[in-house]
Amino acid sequence: MEPFKFIRAQDNNNAIAAAAVADAKFIAGGTNIIDLMKLNIEKPHQVVDINALKLDKIETLSNGTIRIGALVKNSDLAYHPNISKNYPVLSEALLSGASAQLRNMASVGGNLLQRTRCPYFYDTSYPCNKREPGSGCSAINGYNRNNAVLGTSDKCIATHPSDMCVAMAALGAIIHVQGAKGMRSIPFADFHLLPGKTPSIETTLKHGELITAVDIPVMSFAVKSHYLKVRDRASYEFALASAAVVLDVQGGRIQHARVALGGVGTKPWRSTVAEKVLTGALNNEQTYRTAAEAALSAAKPYTHNAFKIELAKRTLVRALTTVGGMS
């Protein structure tokens, strides 16, 4: 790890000012950035500790929106009664991620920005476009069992690893950020970027911008929602495939649907095509399977991960069945 200056920020402005220098980074829970710093993948020379900032509240705004401070711990968010009762998909996604200890550390802001677990990204002795733009992608022709099948490019096929983000994508969250030039809000779908030609640029967050909060807009039918994660072992592992599903079924017909996939996409994968199939359709296996086919229709397999396409479909069908039942 490279030496760095450690700064304890006292408030938002303070933090933003400290993070303005070129190679500065915020640190919240530390669970991703310290991991990467130890491996020389992140090399900030100034680390700004934001844990003293007052961003650790979960509030319900007058319009019903839930505002989650960026420093709220993943565990606190998952167990918050409003979330576990009204947005089980989010609670379940959070609880399926990492371990109890890590969830006690990980913040909502940090989770949004966690980086891929592509093994080549993690090993500085291999070329990797995301880590070192232009050096090449070792995964495309390498060992890529855990890489993505959706949203890939010829520069990078890294999976976005977050579970929380998949649920937030389905819920249409809004991310609030504050920078030297003031505040702005970013719809979830616009936050993460596809790798395209520049896999090292992962989000639309600008350098030095601080995430302050995430809003979960009112979605009354989200009471019926579910996150299903499939992996090689029962816990403490990233997803091979996962599905976040919100369904509003009335009288055997799906009125509203929200679908997002994890473990298969280069970003948290909201599937509007699947939602389109579902909306207005009967809640039966046929519908679910058609939606799953649609969701994965653009999928591209690589040497070791072709199975993810079928697995993701089945995961989605199962999640839809669990939430929407069968008529």
Partner: peptide, 29 residues
């Protein structure tokens, strides 16, 4: 493991269990 992947380093910070390998000492003021 030194990377949050095993739990051997678990301690309680302000009563909550965390992985001490992924926390800088400096963050524990």
């Amino acid at each position: 493991c030194d990377h949050g992947q095993c739990g051997a380093c678990t301690v309680l910070v302000n009563g909550r269990r965390i992985n001490s390998c992924l926390t800088f000492a400096a963050m524990c003021e």
